[in-house]
Amino acid sequence: MLDDSLLDLPDALARADRHGLLRGAAEAGARVRTALRHATEAGVTELSPEGRPRAVLIAGSGAAATGTADLIGALAGAAAPVVRLTPTGVAPAAGALRWTLPGWAGPVDLLLIATTEGSEPGLALLAEQAYRRGCTVVAVAPGRSPLSEAVGAARGLLVPMATAPSGQYAPNGPQTPTGERAPNTEGPEGEGTLVAGSGALWALLVPLLVLLDRAGLLTAPAETLQRVADRLDRTAERCGPAIATYSNPAKTLAAELADSLPLIWTEGTAAAPAGRRFAAVLAELTGRPALAAELPEALPAHGALLAGDLAGGESDPDDFFRDRTEDGQALRARIVLLRDRPAGGLTAAPAARELAIGHDTPISELEPEEGSELEALAELIAVTDFATLYLTLAGATPA
């Protein structure tokens, strides 16, 4: 059950947030800026690729790496095939995963490796395999790691992963003893505390966006990425723990999703990967099942769910005299509609709302402010990440 009262008690949220998850989410904008600087210092912005790669292969471990592959695939569109390499077994090291290049991969293909750890033997072996095949290798990983050595041996390019700056300003976050905001005390090498979450996603994603922009596969100039960082900062201010639920879109969404099965329906290029990420982090952090689908396919795909036991209303309204105190809270479907600019200006949102009303199913809607596709993506990810964290910290679990 969700403790609604906890949402408007910043001190209580801070005590519950033993791993600094809210701070990590608030520092996503800072992580974008640091990652952009690391990419520049690594020489990515000066690259002059000779034509586009035939295909982009992406490998990595953890949720952040998985999300990176999904986002790049959505943003690249039809410019070049984007193939996520999934582990196919175990590597020679005990308990290690193994990644393998497809048989057709060769000198005209680009291998991207993204990891927050850099110690996976399987990724080091993948870099070696790519070198033997003639693939170009680019990795984003911790600078001092076994993977960095393997990428160097494969004559690849390594961009050190941006960590969260020590003492970095976080909207509505830690203050000095005098009550002033903590200053940015980032060291000369950008060292700091690495906090898992959306910050890790952007730390991996930004250098690869810069690279693919240089290769002509998508549009992500430095100016756009700076605006993404600004959008993340503004969203963190709107969604911070000090902002009351009634004016905080993330807390509002968290309260609406209490005891619900989220059906995440998306419309628009940026909304689709944001919705899939939302479902993944809900499952990972809260243990709450969630289903994501794109409109208009979501309507027939989830229509049967809305007509069954998960639909709104009581499952047995005639049993007035049953002892409800002994009943567990029933899990009911709730639609979460994430919208960006739909293709061709056509929208299936009215049909989605009509279906929800027809099945007595509540619906929550999120739509980003005007801006580029990357800015819209950043805002949707930030709001849903904060909502997931509030659900986690307030003790929300499926009934």
Rank of each mutant, 00 (worst) to 15 (best):
G173V: 08
G29R: 01
P289W: 03
P368S: 02
P160M: 07
L355R: 12
A170H: 01
G275P: 04
E256T: 12
T193M: 11
L285Q: 11
A293D: 15
A79L: 03
G20M: 07
L205S: 06
I335R: 02
A141L: 11
V195P: 00
E267W: 04
L209N: 08
F386K: 00
A196R: 12
P160S: 06
Q226Y: 00
L123M: 02
E367N: 01
D319Q: 14
T136I: 01
A12W: 04
A78M: 09
A64E: 10
P87G: 06
E189M: 10
G303A: 13
A80C: 05
P160V: 08
R33L: 15
T235N: 02
L295H: 07
A311C: 14
A39F: 09
E365A: 15
R84M: 00
G73S: 08
L377A: 10
A69S: 12
S148W: 00
D327E: 15
G152N: 13
A76K: 00
P188K: 05
P296G: 06
A215D: 00
A272V: 15
L123P: 06
G199F: 05
G240P: 11
S145P: 10
P221F: 10
D11V: 09
A74N: 02
L22C: 08
A25F: 10
L13N: 01
T88G: 15
T136D: 08
G89D: 07
E50C: 09
L201P: 05
L285F: 12
E41Y: 00
N248Q: 11
A65V: 09
D259F: 11
L337M: 09
D4Q: 09
A96W: 01
E373F: 00
A154S: 11
A63I: 11
E326K: 13
E256C: 13
P142G: 06
T266E: 04
A222E: 14
R234Q: 13
R98P: 03
A130C: 10
S166M: 10
R288Q: 14
R98L: 15
A30N: 11
C239L: 07
L338A: 06
A271C: 04
L201E: 06
T286R: 07
I72S: 04
R341P: 01
L125N: 03
A399T: 13
A170E: 07
P207T: 05
P102E: 10
L305S: 11
T235F: 03
S5Q: 14
E27C: 12
V82Q: 04
A79Y: 02
T115L: 01
V383W: 02
G395F: 07
R234V: 06
A348H: 13
V138H: 10
T235S: 14
S145Y: 09
A124Q: 10
P296I: 03
L36N: 02
A76W: 04
D318W: 13
G122H: 01
A164Q: 14
G62W: 03
A343C: 02
A229Q: 02
A35N: 09
A65S: 15
M1G: 14
G51D: 08
L57S: 00
Y246C: 14
L391S: 10
R31P: 00
G106E: 04
R155D: 14
S364N: 06
P317K: 09
T219I: 10
P53S: 05
A394F: 06
D233W: 11
T269Q: 14
T40R: 15
A399W: 11
A12I: 03
E267F: 08
L22V: 07
